[in-house]
């Protein structure tokens, strides 16, 4: 049995304000007159399975449909079409059973700001008909870090502490599947790393985790990922497999004048795409015959100094950009 199984799930909203469809799983098509309508494509919708004990990442930018997917799977929103199960329970018929066995941490901090840390935790334990003492083992490592502030109101906590409290509350009834919607958005790189360490420990205890993030560098910390944009999955696979499927040659190029380098690389007829990537520019080359020294002389002819060209393996971010341009 899969921990989560979704089959052609879709949900679309028509926003009066923007005059557009947005949501999950249905491609929006533009007809000849320029007006927009939903695609009739019966195959539309997103489908995926999450194995028990897996960390599965939904990776994509704002507005891609991540939160809509989370709300549907946590039984808070009805899908337009398709069906899904969590722990074998149907998200519509068996919503009560699902709510008992999942933990959900929404993207927006949604604990009671005017209750203290301790009161929030007790409240959520009580709602699930359990006690903090009963499942303390599971949250101990996380909760201990905020325990010195247990008399403080949740609204007065820093971002990092709020995040730990929200996770503690989502875990207090010992869920088997944990839904984390953008737990690390706006969080600094040190705290993000720490948070992923916590997730690894939860995985060891057998908890299945569905987690969404806009940070592509977090993809490699998941067992499998789905890349999502504009309501549709671009690809589902393990991070190494996604990287192996990258079709072009990829070079990292540096020179003394990085801003001119970007322009010159883009003007090169062999360049498929070129983007800044930290301290180097990544350039995708589809012509396998094109050699490194040919690029070097091309750049030397344009007065670039200290040219460095390295063949590199793509990152998930390279793959995402490649797939989203198709």
């Amino acid at each position: 049995m899969y921990a989560i199984e979704a089959n052609k799930v879709s949900k679309n909203y028509f926003s009066e304000k923007s005059g557009k469809f947005a949501g999950l799983g249905n491609p929006i098509v533009r007809n000849n007159t320029g007006s927009k309508s939903l695609s009739d494509d019966k195959a539309a919708g997103v489908s995926f399975e999450v194995h028990e004990g897996e960390i599965f990442g939904i990776i994509g930018p704002d507005g891609a449909g991540k939160t809509t997917l989370f709300r549907i799977l946590t039984t808070l929103l009805l899908a337009d079409s398709g069906n899904a199960t969590v722990n074998g329970f149907d998200i519509v018929k068996d919503y009560r059973a699902i709510r008992k066995c999942i933990g959900y941490m929404p993207g927006r901090f949604s604990l009671y700001q005017d209750l203290t840390v301790e009161e929030n935790l007790n409240f959520f334990a009580t709602v699930f008909n359990t006690t903090v003492a009963e499942n303390y083992d599971l949250i101990k490592d996380i909760y201990q870090q905020i325990e010195p502030f247990k008399k403080r109101r949740a609204g007065k906590l820093s971002g990092g502490m709020k995040q730990k409290l929200a996770l503690s509350c989502a875990l207090i009834h010992k869920p088997t599947v944990l839904f984390l919607d953008e737990p690390t958005t706006g969080v600094d790189p040190v705290s993000r790393k720490e948070f992923w360490g916590i997730l690894k420990n939860l995985k060891k205890q057998g908890i299945t985790i569905l987690v969404s993030t806009p940070y592509m560098d977090e993809a490699s910390l998941c067992d499998r990922i789905a890349l999502i944009q504009n309501g549709n999955f671009l690809k589902i696979d393990t991070p190494p497999n996604i990287i192996n499927q990258y079709e072009k040659k990829l070079w990292a190029v540096q020179s003394q004048n990085m801003s001119q380098l970007l322009k010159d690389l883009r003007n090169n007829a062999q360049t498929m795409n070129c983007f800044a990537f930290g301290d180097a520019h990544h350039i995708g080359i589809s012509n396998s015959q094109y050699k490194e020294n040919e690029l070097r002389s091309y750049l030397e002819a344009r007065n670039h100094k200290s040219i460095e060209i390295r063949i590199i393996a793509p990152s998930v971010e390279d793959c995402f950009m490649e797939l989203s341009q198709k």
């Binding site: 958005t185 800044a276 995402f320 989203s324």
Partner: peptide
């Protein structure tokens, strides 16, 4: 102040190209 949070990778890079132009 965190101008690119949650933005897709291509848009994020195009945004930095605008920053460069402004600085120039």
């Amino acid at each position: 102040d965190e101008p690119t949070g949650g933005v897709d990778p291509i848009t994020r890079r195009m945004f930095w190209e605008m920053i460069y132009k402004a600085a120039e």
